[in-house]
Simulated scan of single mutants.
Amino acid sequence: MKKIIAPLSFVLLFGSHAVFADAEIEAIVDRHCQACHDSGLAGAPKMDDADNWAPRLASGIDAMTQTVISGKGAMPPKGTCFSCTDEQLKAAVEVMVQRLK
């Protein structure tokens, strides 16, 4: 039982992003998110457009993650990262939000 509790405690204390290597999540963002969000392809909110991101940011990370998981408009479910877990996608959303600042 102790073997299960220790890793679970780590996740509860430090959040989902902590269980992934930063490089892994950065690579997901670079490979699956950045191209459309840098260029605004197919209506994706551009990374340098704070006004366009404001309502999304106001909805919170969980709502933004759910949008990525479900897909929206031209963005397919999981934002083309079909092998990503929901937790990896949430961590990728967190990285995207950090890049906005």
Rank of each mutant, 00 (worst) to 15 (best):
M1G: 09
M1V: 07
K2G: 09
I5C: 05
A6R: 14
A6T: 14
P7G: 08
L8V: 14
L8Y: 13
S9W: 13
S9M: 13
S9P: 03
F10G: 10
F10T: 10
V11I: 15
V11R: 14
L12E: 12
L13M: 13
L13Q: 14
F14K: 09
F14I: 06
H17C: 01
A18D: 08
V19M: 14
F20W: 00
F20N: 01
F20C: 05
A21V: 06
A23D: 15
A23N: 11
I25W: 04
I25A: 06
E26A: 15
A27Y: 07
I28K: 05
D30G: 09
H32E: 06
C33N: 08
Q34K: 14
Q34T: 13
A35Y: 10
A35D: 12
C36M: 07
H37S: 02
H37C: 00
D38P: 05
D38Q: 11
L41A: 13
G43A: 08
G43H: 06
P45H: 00
P45S: 01
P45I: 00
P45N: 03
K46T: 09
M47D: 00
D49N: 15
A50H: 08
D51V: 02
N52Y: 07
W53Y: 07
A54P: 09
L57I: 13
S59D: 13
I61F: 01
A63I: 10
A63F: 06
A63Q: 14
T65H: 01
T65V: 07
T65D: 01
Q66C: 07
Q66R: 09
Q66I: 00
T67G: 11
V68N: 00
I69G: 00
I69T: 02
G71M: 07
G71E: 08
K72F: 12
G73C: 00
G73D: 00
P76E: 09
P77K: 12
P77M: 12
K78Q: 07
K78D: 00
K78C: 01
T80H: 08
F82V: 09
S83E: 14
K90C: 00
K90T: 03
A92I: 02
A92N: 02
V93G: 04
E94K: 13
V95Q: 06
M96C: 07
V97S: 03
Q98Y: 09
Q98G: 12
R99W: 01
L100R: 01
